[in-house]
């Protein structure tokens, strides 16, 4: 197992490099460089422009430019934004990333709290009324695009019923302590459910299938044969084994949620990195676009690594070599 984990970590490093190369290549193909556009006056003579290019190293071979970029990125320097003049990309992202993390975590929490119990229940009583209801919900949840679900949620819960806020992260400035916390949670509910909708539907199905799968295996028959109570078989033997692949999949899910946040944040005008990304795309602010791509790709890589390690640790039956 340790050998497997070590090998998995060793695989992680070249992937990290490849991702950085792809992100850099995307930036390289992006039209313009830091000197075209707003920063350069057409009246400035060409040789001044060339001098500046030379000074910035834009005429160096591409692998040298990549090396320089990589070394500055690894120290946390992600460059300067093009549209917010004078602001560094790192600061812009830092100001918003926590909002996106809250949103994704909340969506993940909703997914787990709703989908796992319902999945377990419908596996316990397959073809019951609740099983059919959850199946119907799962089909609908999978077929509803998140932006449509979000709009419906705003229309119903924010405007028709007036229960919850539909935009931003806080109502008024000046709230403190517990009130602030409650206010923030209120602002998270609609976006959180919107973002978590499809994964809730998926995991409900996964959990059910996984439980039924384990229930059909030999060791469950043995457990029943030796006279264990139904609950003991269900929760001690079946659930534990069924949860292993589910938790692993949830590790992958976090990355999906982070990128799904782009759409959800757009609906709720939620100030996270999703909205920052969309504004940057609209304004062709390539340094920000590349930085967010890189950050999310690395997050996903780390998430996958952790999920794989967890899987190896939690399930000793699996032999990797």
């Amino acid at each position: 197992m340790y050998k497997y984990i070590a090998r998995r970590i060793l695989q992680f490093i070249p992937m990290l490099f490849l991702v950085s190369i792809i992100v850099y290549a995307l930036a390289y193909f992006a039209p313009g460089d830091p000197l075209t556009g707003k920063m350069m006056d057409p009246n400035i003579p060409k040789d001044v422009y060339e001098e500046r290019r030379e000074a910035l190293g834009l005429n160096d071979p591409i692998y040298m430019q990549y090396g320089r970029w990589l070394s500055s990125v690894s120290t946390g320097d992600l460059g300067m934004s093009m549209m917010y003049t004078g602001k560094s990309v790192a600061d812009l992202i830092k100001a918003r990333i926590m909002n996106t993390v809250y949103l994704s975590t909340f969506a993940l929490f909703i997914t787990i709290v709703i989908s796992l119990p319902l999945g377990i229940y419908s596996a316990r009583k397959p073809y019951s009324l609740l099983d059919y209801s959850t199946t119907t919900f799962a089909f609908l949840g999978l077929a509803t695009p998140s932006f449509f679900a979000g709009l419906i949620a705003i229309y119903v819960f924010a405007f028709q019923l007036g229960w919850l806020p539909s935009q931003g992260t806080i109502t008024t400035i000046g709230l403190t302590g517990f009130d602030l916390f409650i206010d923030k949670i209120k602002h998270l509910i609609l976006p959180g459910f919107t973002l978590g909708l499809s994964s809730t539907a998926i995991y409900m199905r996964y959990m059910r299938t996984e439980m039924l799968d384990v229930m059909g295996s030999d060791f469950i028959r043995t457990a029943r044969a030796k006279g264990l109570s139904n609950n003991s078989v269900l929760y001690k033997h079946t659930l534990r084994n069924a949860l292993i692949p589910i938790i692993t999949l949830l590790g992958f899910e976090f990355g999906t949620l982070l990128s799904g946040a782009v759409i959800t944040e757009a609906i709720y005008v939620y100030p996270g990195i999703g909205t920052l990304f969309l504004t940057s795309i609209l304004n062709r602010d390539y340094p920000i676009i590349m930085a967010i791509n890189l950050i999310l790709a690395v997050t996903i890589l780390v998430g996958n690594l952790l999920a794989d390690i967890f899987y190896a640790v939690a399930d000793p039956r699996i032999r990797y070599d």
Binding site: M15, L18, V19, I22, V23, L26, F29, A30, P31, G255, T256, L258, S259, G260, V262, I263, F277, L278, S280, I281, R284, Y286, I289, M290, I292, N293, L296, A297, I300, L301, N304
Partner: peptide, 24 residues
């Protein structure tokens, strides 16, 4: 397979939007 792994690492939506931003 490594190429597919790599493609799956960069979030799909961000990749599409980035390419759209590059192609303009």
């Amino acid at each position: 397979m490594r190429a597919t792994d790599l493609m799956l690492t960069i979030p799909f939506l961000l990749l599409v939007l980035t390419i759209i931003a590059i192609l303009q």
